[in-house]
Simulated assay, not measured.
Amino acid sequence: MIKVDIPGRGKYEIENAVFDYNGTVAVNGDMSKNTQENLKKLSEFVNIYILTADTYGTVKKKCENLPVSVEVFPTHDAADYKEKIVKSLSGQSICFGNGYNDIKMFDIADLSVCIIEGEGCSGKLLSHSDIVVNSIDDAFGLVFNTDRIKATLRG
């Protein structure tokens, strides 16, 4: 569990980390070794879910040795699938994404982080995000050093 007490917002006890795949943990369908190591480290604290329509068809292979749950769904209605999956999780969730189809899951997440990364991000997603970062490495920095979350979101 990741615990963070944000002045003016309250206490969070995050049990789930939910990631979009392409554009978030992977760029052009490829996940870096550093990202893989960070996912392993994060799995010691929370349940990790990777949600994707798998544009490049690489998610199963890239995640086969990682302690994550992978959910693949059809490309149509991706936003609805993501929202449904996040709603089904017990406990508080932090969601990470970059695309237009992440808006619905961000709206129901306890905390949400938009990642710009190499593929960019949807401008519409920005207004649904609690925090915006430049890279997946920056996103991991938030959860491994929760004072960054506190400093960014305090009231």
Rank of each mutant, 00 (worst) to 15 (best):
M1T: 11
V4N: 02
R9A: 03
L42W: 10
C121P: 00
T24M: 09
A17C: 14
K3R: 14
K11H: 10
F19V: 03
T52A: 04
L39P: 08
C63K: 01
D110T: 01
S127A: 13
D20C: 07
K124L: 15
G155I: 09
K41C: 01
N34C: 01
F96G: 00
N145A: 13
Y100F: 14
G118R: 01
I6A: 09
G8W: 09
N134F: 10
M105G: 04
I131P: 05
H128M: 08
M105T: 04
Y56C: 05
G29D: 00
Y21H: 09
K124E: 15
N98H: 06
G118S: 06
A53W: 02
S135W: 06
V133A: 09
Y49A: 00
G8H: 12
N65I: 05
N101Y: 03
E71Y: 14
K84S: 15
L51G: 03
C63P: 03
E117I: 01
F144K: 09
I115K: 01
G123E: 13
I136T: 12
Y56M: 10
D102R: 00
F140I: 07
K3I: 07
L39E: 08
M1R: 09
N16L: 06
H128W: 07
F96V: 07
A139D: 04
D80M: 13
T52M: 05
G141A: 13
N22H: 03
A78K: 13
A139T: 04
K82N: 07
D102F: 01
G57F: 11
N101P: 06
I136M: 13
E44H: 12
S112W: 02
D5K: 14
T24Y: 02
N22G: 09
T35I: 08
G141V: 12
K84W: 04
P67I: 10
D138E: 15
P74E: 15
K124S: 14
D30M: 10
L153M: 11
E44I: 00
S122H: 09
D110A: 00
F19W: 03
D30L: 12
V133Q: 04
K33V: 14
E37S: 13
G10V: 13
C95D: 00
A109S: 15
G97I: 01
N98A: 08
I108G: 03
G97A: 06
N47H: 11
K41A: 15
A78M: 05
G123N: 14
G120M: 12
V70M: 08
N98E: 07
I116P: 00
E44S: 14
L39W: 08
K104R: 14
I2T: 01
T146C: 06
T52G: 03
N47Q: 12
F73I: 08
G23A: 04
K33P: 04
H76T: 15
D107A: 12
S122L: 09
F73G: 03
R148S: 08
K124M: 14
Y21E: 01
A79P: 02
V4K: 00
E64I: 10
F73D: 07
S90V: 09
A26R: 05
N65C: 05
L66N: 09
G57M: 12
G10S: 10
K40S: 11
L89H: 06
F140G: 01
N98F: 04
E15F: 00
C63M: 15
N101D: 15
K3N: 13
G118K: 09
